[in-house]
Computed example of a mutant assay.
Amino acid sequence: MTVRQKFPGAEQEFAGKRVLVTGGTKGTGEAIVQRLSASGALVVTTARSATGALSPKLFVRADMNTLAGAEQVAAAVMDRFGGVDIIVHSVGGSKSPGGGFAALTEEIWQDELGLNLLAAVRLDRLLVPNMIASGSGAIVHISSIQRRLPLHESTTAYAAAKAALSAYSKALSKELGPKGIRVNTVAPGWINTTASEAMVKRLADHSGSDEETARQDIMKALGGIPIGRPAWPQEVAELVAFLVSDRASAIHGAEYVIDGGTIPTV
């Protein structure tokens, strides 16, 4: 089904918009790249390596876990497009082993904080001043329900970094709203991606069980998913597309959870 069939008139909704999506070569980031590109956006994406069926206007190979990587991406965006209208910080993830807090080394903590928090902070610092000068823009940070529902066995560092990202996003929204720039956060639950399957494999290897047992252990730790399944990356992409569109022009400083009902509280 095409974008037009789903949303009449959506094919040119982002025509001429300059968009940066970090971590856009697989999973949720790739789905966001494809969704915005299909609606006419000029999409720049970045990752450590190019994989998947990409259709961005520009790809920048860079390590977003470093300041040099962020500077490389910002320079490419400014050189090619002279700035951006929309930023979607999708890059993130966790490589933490099972075993709880004691298994988290200094290197793991630095890696999790760098990828899931500082990558967004650095790029915002480099690109948002241009948005301020133009008086408009939209930013979405991809956080996680783990900031509210951490799994102590496997996501302590990741959850802490995402909690910091959500707090940073709220602070940024207070500063940028009066300057014409909207900032929102999307907090997915379990998304059906290669990264989530990699986490299942790590937990199975750590516990000596099989992957299906590890998958069920995650479901139990989450308290179950009322709709009975993880979300698909394309479903997250639709939410992001709405939030960065003019249809959401009054939505600012908010966090939208997309978790199939996993979080059990209001």
Rank of each mutant, 00 (worst) to 15 (best):
R4S: 08
A10C: 02
E13W: 13
G16M: 05
T22E: 11
T28Y: 05
G29M: 00
A31G: 01
Q34V: 07
S39E: 15
V44N: 00
V44T: 04
T45I: 04
T51Q: 14
V60M: 00
V77Q: 06
D79S: 15
R80C: 10
S90L: 05
G93W: 10
P97Y: 07
G98R: 04
G100C: 03
A102K: 14
E106Y: 11
E107S: 10
N116M: 03
L118M: 15
L118Y: 10
A119L: 09
A120Y: 08
L126Y: 04
N130E: 15
S134I: 05
S136D: 05
A138W: 04
I142F: 00
I145K: 12
T156E: 11
A159H: 08
A159P: 12
A159F: 06
A163Y: 07
S166P: 06
S173K: 03
E175H: 14
G180D: 13
I181T: 02
R182E: 02
V183Y: 00
N184W: 02
N184F: 04
V186Y: 01
I191S: 01
N192D: 15
T194M: 11
E211G: 03
M219R: 10
I225S: 03
I227R: 06
I227N: 00
P230R: 11
P233K: 02
S245H: 02
H252Y: 03
E255P: 07
D259I: 03
D259Y: 13
G261W: 13
V266K: 14
